Each structure stands twice: as C-alpha cells, then as structure tokens.
Amino acid sequence: MTLAELSTIRDLLVCPRCRSRLAAVQGGFACTAPSCPYHASPVFPVVGRWPVLIDFEHSVVRRDTVSCVRTRGAESLPAPLRRLFKPRNRVAARNVELLLRGLPGPEPRLLVVGGATVGNGVGLVYEQSRVQVIGFDIVGSAVTQFVADAHQIPLAAASVDGVLIQAVLEHVLGPAQVVAEIHRVLTPDGLVYAETPFLQQVHAGAHDFTRFTASGHRYLFRRFEEVGAGTVAGPGTQLLWSIDHLVRGLSRSALAGRAARGLLFWLRSLDRFVPPDFAQDDASALYFLGRKREREMSAEDIIGYYRGAQEPDRRRRHASDP
C-alpha cells in the first residue's frame, strides 16, 4: 500500500473556502486567513482519524452525515459471484498503467477523487512504491487521508501530478466545477484519468445526477489534451443494465433484477463485436485520459470531435464493408 501518510501531505492542505493554509487547533483544523469564516469558528473537525475539510455552507454533504464507509453490494458477494456481477475492468487496468507510466519524477503524487473504496481495475495504483497516493471522499476509509467535497478540493494549486476519478462525476452537482478543481490542483502537464457513465440507470438514489455522451465527456475536459478516450463498456453491457432494471420494475424486486443480470451475463461479451464508432453511440460508460493544458477547446472543436457511427460518411463506409 502506497497511501501517503497524512503528516507528509499536511503542507498541501488548504481551506476549501478561501484556499489559505490550515493550522491545527483544538478539535480540528482552522483557516489561517483572518477574514475567512473558518479562521475561528466553526473549525474543520476530525472524525475518527479523518480531518473533515468541507465548507458545509456550500456543500450537499451535511456535518452530521460524515462517517466511515461500509463495504456492501457486489463486494460482499463470494468471489465467483462477484466476478459474474462485476467482472474486472480491463479497460481501467490498461489505462491506469498508462497513467502511472506518464507520471513524472521519482515520487509523483496521485490524487484519487472519490476514493473511499479501491475502484474496479485500479488496484495497481496502490501497489506502486514510487507513487504517493492521496485519497479523499465524502466518507472516511482505509484508503483516504481526509474527507472532502470534490467541488472544493482542499489541496494547494499545482500540488499533484495525476488525478484518478472513476465513477464519481455522475454523483456531483457540478461536474464542470469538479473538473476545474482537478485542473487547478494538477501540476503543469499533469495527467487525469476519468471514467463516467453514459447509458446507465440510476445507481445511487438521490446522489445520482448526470450522464455524458462521448462528445460531452470530452468537452467536460476541454482544458486537457487528449491522450486517450473511448468506451469502458459497450452496448452489450448497457443492455444488461436495462434488462436488470426492467425486471426490477416489473417484479418490484431488486433481487429479481440481479438474478436476471446473472443469468444473462453473457450479453456483456457482445461488446467485443461492436465497432468502436457504433459502441461510442451506445456505450454503458466512457473513459478519458488527458494532460493538463491552458488552451480550451472551442464549440467548433467539439462539433468536429464526434467519432460515432451517425456521421453520413461513416454510415456509407460501414454499408460498403464486405
């Protein structure tokens, strides 16, 4: 495990409200800026071992809900069933290797946003002795050093060399604000790897807000140079999601939906037979790997970016394929 000790990143922590340095005080941490509301009271508390660095006045996270994460769902199933319901994310595993190879220096810092649990396919991040991993979420866990809201990342500007954000942007109210924060905390030429749903049903109740097409996902990261982008899971996986939730709706039973998903698990294998341009238009989830830049994509750029199968010349090309 290469999770950085909190003591080694203390100097990187800043006030989420005004981004001034923090000072340890009785009961937690306080902002060092006299004009900041968090200079004196209320301080940022410590819950368990986790500093809670959230500006509660500007967050949907409530002070009384901060706690330690409890693993549940697919992670609690026996290993064979877990692989059936949630197979290893090979796309993430491949791209995380690229991300780690691209991080500069002998001891680069990698920030995991929404990292209360180790994401599917990204375990390699925590196995690299050269990488200092910094993790946070709105709950504390064994793989996070502090609790924070991604809309206001409590880290100094240009303080990390890479950012990993997997299956998080659909759960925030302002994805563009979160990406702007990622851009701010990254060093020049820093890397970001993101995975976000496109065609998936609601999977976190009241905390599920947004979906992105491939073009929308790219435009979200418009201040980044693309290193790679594509589908994490394609139309077969998307169909499996739909069948699961159709059965849930008809039966009023989540268990029945999961049973249907288990019986039809083989639909996922159809993803490999769908060409990338068709898959992009009907993907279950998408990824983006990019490098920080100051230049921003224009509206014309993003219209020209489209790579799906609905462009006329692409349709003609596929029609002429033998």
Rank of each mutant, 00 (worst) to 15 (best):
M1T: 06
A4D: 02
E5Q: 13
S7R: 08
L12V: 01
C18G: 04
R21A: 08
L22G: 11
A23C: 07
A23Y: 02
V25L: 05
S35L: 07
C36Y: 10
Y38P: 06
H39V: 03
S41D: 08
V43K: 03
F44L: 02
V46R: 09
V46W: 08
V60I: 10
D64T: 04
D64Y: 02
T65S: 13
V66T: 03
C68Q: 15
V69A: 15
R70A: 10
T71Y: 15
R72H: 14
A74C: 10
P80W: 01
L81F: 09
F85N: 01
R88P: 01
N89I: 10
N89W: 00
R90F: 03
R90L: 11
V91Y: 05
A92N: 13
R94E: 12
N95K: 12
V96Y: 00
L98G: 02
L99S: 00
L100S: 01
R101W: 04
L103R: 12
P106G: 12
P106F: 12
R109W: 04
G114A: 03
G115D: 06
G115T: 04
A116T: 13
V118R: 10
G123D: 05
L124N: 02
L124R: 06
V125K: 04
S129C: 08
V131F: 11
G135V: 00
A142C: 06
T144A: 01
Q145N: 15
D149Q: 00
A150L: 00
H151M: 01
Q152H: 14
A156R: 13
A158L: 01
L164H: 05
I165C: 10
A167T: 04
V168I: 11
H171L: 00
V172E: 11
G174S: 11
P175D: 08
V178K: 03
V179P: 06
A180S: 07
A180D: 13
V185S: 07
V185Q: 09
V185I: 07
D189N: 11
G190D: 09
G190L: 04
L191V: 05
Q200T: 09
V202A: 13
H203K: 04
A206S: 09
H207E: 14
D208R: 06
A214M: 11
G216R: 02
H217P: 12
Y219N: 10
Y219P: 07
R223G: 04
E225W: 07
G228Y: 10
G228V: 03
A229H: 12
V232H: 12
A233L: 01
Q238N: 08
Q238G: 09
S242G: 15
I243N: 09
I243Q: 10
V247K: 07
G249N: 13
L250N: 07
L250C: 09
A256F: 09
R258S: 14
A259G: 13
L264T: 12
L264P: 14
F265K: 13
R268Q: 10
R268V: 11
D271L: 00
D271T: 07
P276G: 09
D277W: 09
Q280S: 14
Q280C: 13
A283S: 08
Y287K: 03
L289Y: 12
L289C: 03
G290K: 03
K292R: 09
K292S: 03
E294F: 08
E294M: 13
M297Q: 12
E300I: 11
D301R: 06
G304P: 10
Y305I: 07
Y306M: 05
Y306A: 03
G308A: 08
Q310S: 15
E311T: 14
E311I: 15
R316D: 06
R317P: 03
R317N: 06
H318R: 11
D321Q: 15
D321K: 14
